[in-house]
Design a protein around this nucleic acid. Structure first.
Lengths: 205, 205, 205, 205
DNA sequence: TATGAATGAGGATTCATTCAT
DNA sequence: CATGAATGAATCCTCATTCAT
């Protein structure tokens, strides 16, 4: 799946392609996503698909980026809302966590993580860029919340890392369908964690 | 990779097979693990490999179980040491986290998670059993530490879930080779987290 | 399926083996008959099966011979009955034709015919021997019937060949499940044929 | 040999492929026909072969249909000749019977019959369609011959079935190489049969 | 006799990728 | 831009057969 490679995309890949790729991956896993099948789904020859993406790996990464792009827009919107930092943090968390087992976006992430260790630097960089966006936005939000006295005076970067690790761990559990886990429980765990370590102490008093 | 299936394996699969499978997976990824290649590595025909495992998927799961078995022994040893709960918790964490990017054990987990969503119940159950062992041991340790006043009075099960989610998140980051992460930093993060939420408050005083 | 070959049977192969082989072939076709599977069915290792039969081809032929042996006994019994030749001929025909599509015995024949063209002389001879028995018994019956004035004065050998060809053709159609054919219709056809060409003319008068 | 399946084949499969398949089957049996080998014979990758046929089973059926198509043309030509019905019937019979043991066309039929019992309805229907063509043409010829007083007043459909059963039985014997049978003898038998039951009685007088 | 672990030679099939049109 | 025929390497898995015990 990672041979020569050559061309790149010329015209903007139709969104439908990315969406269809996402759907198939979510439903039946990445292994079930074949270029020919995807072409069939979107009414495009497999040849043309490769003409656009150059490589199946590239398609995978592009799909992830597209999906992230959409989440990024949502994230931007919710973070810039005129609302308390705590409320916006809650929205952030809700956006972060998978909706249910096999959540397309998370399924994709899992796959990308898998190949990550064997990917080239360019690919790893793009992947890191995505993670970075989530991270920076979270840091900014924490800074703001702390400044306004909504949050305790945690170290923003450190806390963001900690929270994201927690979110990633919980997300994997949910996305993978681990028995005894689901989105609601994950949300509750996060709420607990935030109450314990970020929100004002007098909260519990 | 998931066809008919049929159970076989009567004699204990040689450890060498599992070890070799692990090595290859760690070095070049699961996709690079072919039955033929593995057979070559361990001096066994690919036919016989299938005779033992019945399926490549089964081999994967068995390798994970074997690897877990070894960790389980280590875990048991360190947890029953006559040492403070805090020290034992530290060991537990050190055992949990990957050694470095591409850590074989974690690479395996990533792969298993990937297929998990599309696996059958039996496979998922075996997977859950492994996770359960880590969880229960952690809970027991927390209970003990709390009883002896070493830890704050957290709710053990809840805290264990939180800590494990954190560990999983950090582990993935490390195993996957995310820039800016490594084992040491992960350990530091965990230490921070524990200091903040589990260890006695007077610690920081 | 036709390599070296070496040993032969030592003890009388248990009937159960032959019977089980027959059943499997009838139900799912010869391709589905594996030595290992058959061994499982009869509680015998595949190794021992080969120890008995030496070869899968040999097993096939032996199964056919065993099946023929049973039919041969029946045939002998019915032919030696103290009954009119016409009645005995009718029984012969009923024994000859398959019971229904996938009739085990005929399924076997079809398979044997298939390999026949590529078989060695010994195998072909054994196969011919079986066909010969049916032929000779039929000839004898015709001779007797003619002598007693029950049948017209056809040339026995020639007529037997013709009748058997007819029976084989009809049998294949029935055994194979050709639409529009079944045992009853086949029997009617044969009856017609016999009335037209073997039984006394005054019959129709 | 009968998995998922998927239809493909858009362009007309080169005749050469079918012809080569036929040749190999005739020479060494269907088991010896491998996609790779066939690809080699016709200078086409095995991948492309499957791209065309989708399945080895499909290739088998297609080869039979192609072969039948050619015979069908011949049959059509000889039946529409301006010749006595008896002469045309003779040609029909000559076309029907195998040329010699291992006659490719008949070898194919034998194989198809074998799987027939385990085939799906679609496959069985296509098979039946072929047999039906032979049958209908024969019936038509009989009707014509009877109308013109060349043949006795047999019931055409019934007689056609009987004759075809006879032809199938004899054909198998010849194709399979049963000792004591060959095309000439088979032809003689058929001639006898026809003289006895179809041609005018005064013939023999 | 009997076992069953071990073999190893295939076999069909899949699929990303190429390229002439 | 777009096609889709063509490739061919690679894969898992099957199974008759062997042989040490």
């Amino acid at each position: 799946m990672t041979p020569p490679a050559r061309r790149r995309n010329v015209a903007p890949p139709r969104e439908a392609v990315l969406r269809a790729a996402m759907d198939t991956i979510a439903e039946r896993g990445l292994d079930a996503l074949t270029m020919a099948g995807l072409g069939r789904d979107v009414g495009m020859s497999s040849g043309h698909l490769l003409y656009y993406f150059g490589t199946k790996d590239e398609l995978l990464l592009r799909t992830l980026e597209w999906s992230e792009g959409r989440l990024g827009v949502e994230r931007g919107a919710l973070l810039s809302r005129p609302a308390p930092a705590a409320a916006r943090l809650d929205s952030y968390v809700r956006l972060y966590l998978p909706d249910a087992p096999r959540d397309p976006h998370w399924t994709l992430w899992l796959e990308v993580w898998n190949r990550s260790a064997y990917a080239d630097d360019a690919a790893r960089a793009r992947q890191a860029a995505i993670e970075g966006a989530w991270h920076r936005d979270l840091v900014a939000l924490l800074v703001e919340g702390i400044a306004q006295g909504e949050f305790r005076a945690v170290r923003p970067d450190r806390f963001a890392t900690r929270l994201r690790a927690l979110l990633d761990g919980l997300s994997v559990h949910v996305a993978v369908g681990l028995p005894g886990t689901d989105r609601e429980r994950a949300l509750a765990h996060v709420a607990d964690f935030l109450a314990d370590s970020l929100l004002p102490v007098d909260d519990a008093a």
